[in-house]
Amino acid sequence: MDAVIQYAPLLWQGLLTTILVTVMGGALCLVVAFTAGLARLSRHRILRWPAGIFIEVFRGTSLLVQMFWLFFALPFFGIQLHPLTAAVLALGLNEGAYAAEVVRGAIASRAKGQTEACIALGMDPALRLRRIIIPQSIPAMLPPFGNVMVDLLKNTSLVSLVTVADLTFSAQMIRSTTGQTTAIFITILVMYFALSYLLTLLTSWLERRFALDRKALTLQRKENALMKVGAA
């Protein structure tokens, strides 16, 4: 265990990098998911087809291949990305392609009557999407989004293979200097597990937060409180 204690600052740095990559990759993933997912539902072929190709290509090939391609092959086109950029880009695009299908599925499975009610109220497609369809679909998206984010977190370990000094990279470094393989790997396994668990907790908190009738419940609670004050 002494290697773990001795190299704790390095592990801490690695942990911070892992969290940073997760957060940036997650943000990119969400942007990609909504862009590609909504484009996939568009009436216009010019949006639908590129989105479809993007989703199939990024879901159909390995994340590691994509990451290596951005890191090793892109420089031949004269584009040299910082390892961290290549890593975040690959993670965000790859997981975003999966999450795009979540967005598409959740929106496509909305009740048809909701769209009809919007038309009857004169709402144009953009307003419909922004005010009604997307907010309603969020609760259905949250659980699968949670899975995508846990996947993304675990896949951040691959960034160590393109020289980003994350938790896995630090562990490998400590292993090769100290030879204390068991302690160091058990430690980072537990750390990854704790992070996954936190993400799961966050997802279920968001699920409760965005549940459809949650808003009404809080409003009513306020109302009841006022009535009690009035009665007293």
Binding site: K154, S157, L158, T168, T181, F185, L189, Y192, F193
Partner: peptide
Amino acid sequence: VFVRGTPLLVQAYVAFFVLPA
């Protein structure tokens, strides 16, 4: 739950580096 919560890459390293010990 533990296996699902940890990266495949790190699991592979454990099997490759730790188990032979």
